[in-house]
Design a protein around this nucleic acid. Structure first.
Length: 423
RNA sequence: GCCCGGGUGGUGUAGCCCGGCCCAACAUGUGGGCCUGUCGAGCCCACGCCCCGGGUUCAAAUCCCGGCCCGGGCGCCA
């Protein structure tokens, strides 16, 4: 049984529990073993008088973090945590842990993030850390539920590709038999091709790879992207989907992860929709003369704006020249694009796409890219491509901003960064 | 990639500025002992550490140079 399934009302019942030895408190004639599983803790109590001498002796020697199977009787007990304890008949050491431990699961002594990531299997045993990933799981479940209900089709696109998606970002080269290939930085081109295929509404939750040598608290070289693409929709339409999705995710986490939020000491509020929308031009105004027109907003700028706007907001109508070639123009200078922000963290980025073949080819050229290398993509635009829009949402960024984590690595089980390839 | 800060028992810190009093301190841990209501258990004893290489000096954890590694900020990136 799991720790959460046992209650004081089960007094007298025989149970079998499994778990890790969180702590052993040996008081001489009375030994407490605190057993931990993913749901919580169970106190196993061994009073010398009533426990078989062999079992009692063995219990005193059990090392922390060993894995146990305990058969025993539930005893209602005021003095025990959660109001009950287990008086064991059989203690079976399924696997003994070595000592000393690479870090303290009990959190008596903190460990550096680096040490924690080096020993992630043990770091993840900490209820606080586990809670992050329980919530991340709830978030992905919530996203899937929402998008499925909205009539989206979940798809999987290639992660090994022949060409860059957008120019700009650096790609990881991989050896593909006799050719060179790359790890995909985004499913962008493929989800657009599916619009031509008539899928109308698609989404994908999958890994993306960026070979940038950044070393910050909000960048990873391997991350998870939630991507959607919708036919016959403009950027306003997909912004509405995005804000409703975010609100729904917050709602579901609030409802289904109460315990985890409490462990993490996070007070969540479902953001109100519609989210505030400011244009790029308005953003620049808020900043005074900090950023010249046409430049991207740097962290400093985003922090300034983020401090002025509570909760989530969109920055819309970005200069076309700093957007990728597939983004549709609004006029000479601006584009039908948006970023979803939470504080200074950019959560998502989207736009209406350029679906007109001639314009698209023009855009590719104007970015200094070669239309020939995008032929597999461009072909889909010559035989009936509907107007369409979409966005990509960084899952780890969402987790980070929701839970107030101060490093995005905390939101990844085994993060890949500039120097970390193992574990 | 650049700038700044750092690397001391398994883990987290102090000591470094101003070299000697440091065969390095504290907490946690580990091993042993005492203890029948712990829940950060308590008490006693023991164990375990100066990133690597070079230099300065009578003397280096401490100062200098190089390397490797880590953190923060920036840039790049969405």
């Amino acid at each position: 049984m799991r720790s959460a399934e046992i209650s004081p009302e089960m007094d007298g019942k025989k149970v079998t529990v499994f778990g890790w030895v969180h702590e052993v408190r040996d008081l001489g004639g009375l030994v407490f073993i605190v057993l931990r599983d993913r749901e919580g803790f169970i106190q196993v109590t061994l009073p010398k008088k009533i426990i078989d001498p062999e079992t009692f002796k063995k219990a005193k020697k059990i090392s922390r973090e060993s894995v146990l199977r305990v058969e025993g009787t539930v005893k209602k007990e005021e003095k025990a945590p959660n109001g009950f304890e287990i008086i064991p008949e059989v203690i079976d050491v399924l696997n003994e842990s070595q000592a000393p431990l690479p870090l303290e699961v009990t959190e008596k002594v903190p460990a550096d993030l680096d040490t924690r990531l080096e020993n992630r299997f043990m770091d993840l045993r900490r209820p606080k850390i586990f809670a992050i990933f329980k919530i991340k799981s709830e978030i992905t479940k919530s996203i899937r539920d929402f998008l499925n209900r909205e009539g989206f089709i979940e798809v999987q696109t290639p992660k090994i590709v022949s060409t860059a998606t957008e120019g700009g970002t650096e790609l990881f080269p991989v050896s593909y038999f006799e050719r060179e290939a790359f790890l995909n930085q985004s499913p962008q081109l493929y989800k657009q091709i599916l619009m031509s295929a008539g899928f109308e509404k698609v989404f994908e939750i999958g890994p993306i790879f960026r070979a940038e040598e950044h070393n910050t608290t909000r960048h990873l070289n391997e991350a998870t992207s939630v991507d959607i693409e919708v036919s016959f929709a403009d950027h306003e339409d997909v912004m509405k989907i995005l804000e409703r999705l975010i609100a729904k995710v917050y709602c579901d986490v609030l409802e289904n992860c109460e315990k985890q939020l409490e462990i993490l000491d996070v007070k969540l509020e479902v953001p109100e929709i519609p989210f505030e929308r400011i244009t790029y031009d308005e953003a620049l105004e808020m900043l005074g003369d900090q950023i010249p027109w046409g430049e991207d907003l740097d962290l400093q700028a985003l922090k300034t704006i983020g401090s002025k706007i509570e909760s989530h907001y969109f920055i819309t109508n970005w200069p076309i020249k700093i957007k990728p070639f597939y983004v549709m123009a609004l006029d000479e200078k601006l584009s039908k694009s948006f970023d979803l922000m939470h504080g200074y963290i950019e959560l998502a980025s989207g736009a209406q796409r350029e679906h007109r073949y001639e314009k698209l080819v023009e855009n590719i050229k104007s970015k200094g890219l070669h239309p020939e290398s995008f032929e597999f993509y461009l072909k889909a635009f010559r035989y009936g491509m509907p107007p369409h829009s979409g966005w990509g949402l960084g899952l780890e960024r969402l987790v980070m901003s929701m839970l107030n984590l101060n490093n995005i690595r905390e939101a990844m089980l085994f993060p890949r960064d500039r120097t970390r390839l193992v574990p």
